[in-house]
Amino acid sequence: MAEELVLDTAIRDWVLIPLSVVMVLIGILRYFVSKLMRSSQVPDVKIVKEGQVIVRARNLRAAANFIPAKSFRARRFYYSNEENGLLFVPKGQSQNAQAQMFSDPNMAMDMMKKNLSMIIPQTLTFAWVNFFFSGFVAAKIPFPLTQRFRSMLQNGIDLSTVDVSYVSSRSWYFLNLFGLRGLFSLILGEENATDDTQRMMQMSGFGVDPTKSLGAEKDGLDIVQHDWALPKFEQRAESVLRKLVH
């Protein structure tokens, strides 16, 4: 840093602080708007049923060692026998379910709403920042960076002589966009900005055939090695009690 730039305090009062405050407020507004727009669609009975069966089978698999071998075998038979087990899927049905899921217009509509509630405020804020605050230095990051970061941090300023650690207002907007995610998770609770990325993941795995997961769960249940844990618990209890007595 050869020479220090002197920044006008008006920039602080009218750019830096308002920009950050507006970003926070828009984040909160977006949260409530997306909460309002979330349509409470009636879930399909069949899909819910399958989901619950999977959850139950998973519970059985996780807690297999806490029930006697006989009980476990009976339960496993209940889930995975080849005639009328809950996890057993007849051949022809799998195609049908997938087609039905894709043809559901409500689902696509919901997805679009979520995306729109994410994109529109960002575009508007960016346009606002661009219109009012373009072309001057708004902040200075307190650590040095290499020239590579110039295009990232001085977006909108075409001066190659300014030190890289000075940040243009447009780039300050981007810094806010990424850095405020943590703050949102604190003030908005669990359904926050990070929730969006999770939703994206769900979307990508959206077309997955539910019957396929039934089959996978059935296979998982079939290969469970049952080993009843409670006899060992008696020994453990005995040792604990002995320790207490002595």
Binding site: T9, R12, I141, P142, V167, N176, G182
Partner: peptide, 21 residues
Amino acid sequence: LGGLMSFVLFWTFAYDIVHIF
């Protein structure tokens, strides 16, 4: 690493307000 971004943002913000202007 998740906290680093928030740290840098608030570090810059406070530093600018207090020291730069």
